[in-house]
Design a protein around this nucleic acid. Structure first.
Lengths: 354, 354
DNA sequence: CTGAAAGCGCTTACAG
DNA sequence: CTGAAAGCGCTTACAG
């Protein structure tokens, strides 16, 4: 097949006996604009196709300053929430001719800063970012640089930038209300210490509901980035220290997963002894027995909003300086783990009765 | 802070009153080699640090032909197996100064071909690939081009290239033996039609064991890329058409997940009515009740092998033309779903009442 | 040790 | 419509 004798724009110009400029212009769709005859343009296109000429993107980027690469920063690509959003974003961006470079921060501020620097060095055309707190000033600098940028999952305190987030406060408020209405009046929230905006919002939703019912709040705040065993251990200790607690609310997916392990380990039954609701949905929660009630994020809509906001910034169809901030509504999906069991077994499924 | 007045190598040469070459040489660690005085070198380094000069990677790449970017192709980044391997690879490569561009093929041959072309256009320094079948000749061309490349998860028929795979035949052979020894003698295998090497190996392991026991094989081969509902429906139809079947072996993680849904939907009890073993481990299988027996892939070891093979090819410390092929052993993790239940009910958890 | 210069492969005013 | 030429920002022989 096609050997690796790299063919250059110069070669094709020479072969067709036209100037390099002509070839370049045709290839970049500026034939009309520059009044190059249709027949010539077609001849160029045909020959380029024939020999399979591909412009060197590096040279092109160096010259134009555009790379058609988008930098995606997530907390952990192995987390199903981020993996799913990333897959959706990738699919949509690919169709528009953009590639993605991604990296995981693992919640590490210093690493995040390095990643951001690397992305700049690689001249990405735009950024999609879910960042740990602590990099506010770096992001502010980035915004000022004028590169299209969008935050998702969480905003950053004091950073004015495009953002797509989910209303975790509302989600957790509704989840707490649901538990309270089911008669679980001793609800505890398990969350992370991180000062991340979305975590605080989720906690806020819980607090709000508890206050409305004039019930005392119980919160377990776990340190970030601990080992699984550590977390499970602390959850179990918490349950034992709060024996009256009869419902647990988890602020994010992996806490919910570990929570199930912790509860199993203690031999507590769900929902008889302990009701469970977690933020984020996934296969495990859906299929677990009993199935777990969740506050699901609208992943497809998030990806869609992220892309469309970023693209409109990239394609300059909007005034610079214009900021788009979206807050999407999560959905409470009631399953077995949060339904009060009268005395005898329940059918299954999901009714919220008030 | 640092404004965006882009500083160039020329600026720093001028400021220090040395030549551009000197600065470049120092920056690329060739000071010694070129006999540049330590004091001068230090002065350069110091000033570069001071003003925060970062060489333009695009220009550098155009000149040197190296990008320090690795192309990673997986089937689906949202699949926990790929997401986890990707996260591990990313972490390890980052430490060595490489970045990753990733894309998902979704099993689509044409899309895969495009991705490969894109990676070439972007001049990635190396490739890490889990590909659908049908792109053998493209990969052969790639190998011939001399770019470091490593296949993982699956090899490609007739393609001689570096590869890291898991011995699925052995894994499934052991899983089948385990089921048979537990007294489940009517074992069916649920797999995908795809001609992918690793799928065939897994099927082969099952066949081997069944033949040794002189038992008839029952295989459900599902079409690739079907909707979840479709798959579940076919699984249920299969179970109903084969009422004697008392054990199901799933060839890959998401089939196992769908399988659980299918079995639940039919109201069959695990393992009383139907034993279950799936390839690949994950939270769901570990925490499901009953917990699911799996053939786990050594993810950490895979990532490690992939990286070390690729790096040694990248860093040219080995003769070109040398090929490394590794086959790692999977691990059978026996859990509740494949253990014969004597007569009475099982201890904890999970009862589907029929 | 250092300077001047070519060249990586393209795009795009600027003159014709 | 087209050609010659500059320039994107670097690296690296080649002469001193």
């Amino acid at each position: 097949m096609k050997l690796k004798k790299k063919i250059l724009i110069h070669d094709i110009a020479k072969h067709l006996d036209v100037s390099i400029a002509t070839v370049s212009l045709v290839l970049n769709g500026k034939a009309k604009e520059k009044r190059i005859s249709d027949s010539l343009a077609e001849k160029v296109l045909k020959y380029v196709e024939e020999v399979g000429y591909k412009p060197n993107q590096l040279a092109k980027s160096l010259r134009t300053g555009k790379t058609h690469v988008i930098g995606l920063v997530v907390e952990d690509i192995a987390n199903p929430f981020f993996a799913t959003v990333a897959a959706l974003i990738e699919k949509k961006l690919l169709a528009r001719g953009y590639r993605i470079i991604y990296c995981s921060t693992n919640g590490d501020t210093a690493k995040t800063r390095d990643l951001l620097t690397m992305f700049q060095e690689r001249h990405v055309d735009g950024y999609i970012l879910a960042l740990p707190d602590g990099v506010e000033s770096d992001v502010r600098t980035l915004v000022r640089s004028g590169k299209p940028l969008i935050l998702f999952d969480r905003e950053l305190a004091g950073v004015l930038a495009n953002a797509v987030v989910v209303d975790g406060e509302k989600g957790m408020y509704e989840a707490t209300q649901h538990l309270l209405e089911q008669g679980f009046t001793s609800v505890a929230m398990v969350t992370l210490q991180a000062g991340q905006a979305q975590m605080q919002a989720r906690l806020q939703g819980y607090s709000q509901a508890m206050q409305e019912w004039q019930l005392p709040e119980m919160v377990l705040e776990l340190e970030f980035q601990q080992e699984r065993e550590q977390i499970i251990h602390q959850m179990q200790a918490f349950c034992q220290a709060n024996p009256t607690c009869n419902a647990l609310l988890f602020a994010t997916n992996y806490l919910g997963v570990y929570g199930l392990e912790a509860v199993n380990g203690l031999g507590r039954r769900i929902p008889e002894d302990l009701a469970i609701v977690s933020f984020d949905d996934n296969d495990l929660f859906r299929l677990y027995s009993p199935s777990i009630t969740v506050v699901a994020q609208p992943l497809e809509a998030m990806a869609e909003s992220i892309i469309s906001t970023l693209l409109s910034a990239l394609e300059g169809s909007q005034e610079t300086g214009r900021i788009t901030q979206l807050q999407l509504a999560p959905q409470l999906i009631v399953r077995e783990s949060s339904i009060r069991v009268p005395q005898k077994a329940r059918p299954r499924a999901s009714r919220t009765k008030t």
